[in-house]
Amino acid sequence: MDNLIAFFYTNKEAIFIIVLTIFLGFEVISNVPSVLHTPLMSGANAISGVIIIGGIILVGHADTSTLNINLVLGILAVIFGTLNVAGGFVVTDRMLEMFEKKRKK
């Protein structure tokens, strides 16, 4: 129990953000037309690639004097993360491009 209380107190800011963000997410996605479900999922998927920041921090301060397992895994994490981000945003844009094209006509 003491551990839990300590955990809450030391991380109170982060816990605040988490709780409020959960409500924010619920609010933002309301009344979405079903046409947009797929692009929205894809766009949200690209945002979940924010783990790339963690990858950058990790490799940024990694020991590069030798080729160690953590460095290799870290580089993989950066590549995977970027794939998620870049691929995600591009594919979402491609889906939405179609909507725009027809609107111009």
Partner: peptide, 28 residues
């Protein structure tokens, strides 16, 4: 999962981005 990593680094952008996608994704 990304938000959990954000927690390790106390990185607000990762925490917010991750949890935001988590809750919006659940509603979706």
């Amino acid at each position: 999962a990304a938000a959990m990593a954000g927690f390790i680094y106390q990185n607000q952008a990762m925490i917010l981005g991750g949890i935001f996608v988590g809750s919006a994704g659940t509603i979706l």
